[in-house]
Write a protein that binds this DNA or RNA. Structure first.
Length: 421
RNA sequence: GGAGACGUCGCAUAGUCCGGUCGAGUGCACCACCCUGCUAAGGUGGAGAGGGGUUUGACCCCUCCGAGGGUUCAAAUCCCUCCGUCUCCGCCA
């Protein structure tokens, strides 16, 4: 949720943000109106309640003969108090509902516009070149009997797969490398629940426009998470944290589930876009003042991971209209995928400033009271990395060189060799 | 799944039977000061969260006793639903 104080003091900043996102600007004025209606309703209720409380105290201390008259007066008042309370509740809800539809205020420098309007910040590493026709990740993986799409579909449907043998080991290796690097950077590893309650999913901002991306279990009223960002944000909901000694950094290892509802026909081959995958996610709670510097650190750790695996990539500053509702800025690191002749997203890191924390009631102590913390998240490893890894390091015979950093996690294996069948 | 007990302002507890004096007591931990003087102890005071008003005063008011409803002039206290924890039983790993 945006800062209600900002709504009062500087609505133009919010209007400009909405404009950059190509989102509704008029909702800002509706929210301002709802805010003053809310305050009026609350004042009216509180005035009546104060009167009622005073009268109640008189009743308690009154002599027997006066009591009947006082109770009669209090009874008259009670109805009005009740309806004023209901009106205040309605006004509060209307204001909250409206305000929640406003996305986070984008940071200065974020490019305006939609999906195509990103800005490339830097390109790193040389794109691999081959003196043979490169195979795509699925062809390579099938050579190792590492990915089985057909049986995945038989058991669970399209966009499901089995990782077997080297495929399973490769995923665990990439994830474990990420985890060790996270440990070195001081992160606390976490294996979180992947089914969460509606208020947690709602609080992280995923139930807005992208609600149809999320699996839901109606008989249990639980959502399957698309990222461990969700449980890690919920971890400290309604808590007051001590971030004065530095940020709280968590590395969540979890399976992620996505319906991919709007992407029929896109990326149907292989494991680029699937319903289920594993991910190691960094999640940070810090002060609002530290948030932008921490965002840079997160993208730094991500780049260092790609570099360790010998991948070439670019970093993009995602445009306002392509940000999630909680993000104030987002950097994607995209690896070069040779057979697609394109950069594909391997990691994404968002600075959610105080937006998520305000929704989830995550605060810190400050001057004269509490204030919301800032939250940030970023990918450190996922199943999808297998794609770029295999394609980048492939050789003419269909084998794949294992980058040195990964070898300790594969019992020293240096080359993935096709199996003869 | 069945039966029972419980859920109080950081932690631990009192209060709930019998509604109003609870505007929630006490201990520990915490903060400030005082005294003292050295792995301390003692004294005094302070201190929760969210919101509204304001002559912007260190002032006033409202809400919060797991959550949500209900009864009542009035609910931590009575009733209902839900959630969670614990104990026992059953079932299944």
């Amino acid at each position: 949720m945006i800062d209600p104080q900002l709504l009062r003091d500087d609505p133009d900043t919010i209007r400009r943000s909405q404009e950059a996102r190509r989102a509704s600007v008029s909702v800002v004025d509706q929210a301002i109106e709802a805010e003053s209606a809310r305050r009026a309703a609350i004042s009216e209720f509180e005035r009546l309640r104060a009167e009622q409380n005073a009268l109640g105290k008189q009743v308690a201390g009154a002599a027997k003969e006066e009591k009947a008259a006082l109770v009669a007066r209090a009874q008259e008042l009670a109805g009005g108090v009740k309806s004023a309370q209901a009106a205040a509740g309605d006004a509060e809800r209307h204001f909250t509902d409206l305000t929640r539809t406003i996305a986070n205020v984008v940071l200065p420098g974020v490019p305006a516009g939609g999906e195509e309007d990103f800005v490339v910040l830097r390109e790193v590493g040389e794109k691999p070149s081959f003196d043979f026709e490169p195979r795509d990740h699925l062809a390579l993986a099938e050579g190792f009997d590492a990915i089985d799409m057909g049986r995945g579909a038989k058991v669970s449907g399209a966009r499901f797969y089995f990782l077997k043998g080297l495929g399973a080991r490769l995923e665990l290796a990439i994830m474990s490398l990420g985890l060790d690097r996270a440990l070195d950077a001081g992160f606390t590893p976490v294996i979180p629940p992947t089914l969460v309650k509606p208020e947690i999913m709602e609080g992280t901002g995923f139930l807005g426009e992208h609600a149809d991306e999320i699996y839901y279990l109606p008989s249990d009223e639980l959502y399957l998470v698309g990222t461990s960002e969700v449980p890690l944000a919920g971890l400290h909901s309604d808590e007051i944290l001590d971030v004065s000694q530095g940020p709280l950094r968590y590395a969540g290892w979890s399976t992620c589930y996505r319906r991919e509802a709007g992407s029929y026909g896109k990326d149907t081959r292989g494991i680029i876009r699937v319903h289920q995958f594993n991910k190691l996610e960094m999640f940070v709670y810090t002060t609002p003042e530290e948030a932008e510097a921490e965002h840079e650190r997160l993208v730094g750790w991500q780049e260092s991971m790609l570099q360790a695996l010998g991948l070439s990539y670019r970093v993009i500053d995602v445009a306002a209209g392509d940000l999630g509702s909680s993000a104030a800025r987002k950097f994607d690191v995209e690896a070069w995928v040779p057979t697609q002749n394109a950069f594909r997203e391997l990691t994404s890191t968002s600075n959610c400033t105080t937006y998520q924390a305000r929704r989830l009631g995550i605060r810190m102590r400050g001057e004269g009271g509490t204030r919301p913390v800032a939250t940030l998240n970023g990918t450190l490893a996922t199943t999808r990395w297998i794609v770029a890894l295999l394609e980048t390091h492939q050789q003419a015979d269909g084998s794949v060189l294992v980058p040195e950093a990964l070898r300790p996690y594969l019992r020293g294996l240096e080359v993935l060799e096709p199996v003869r069948r």
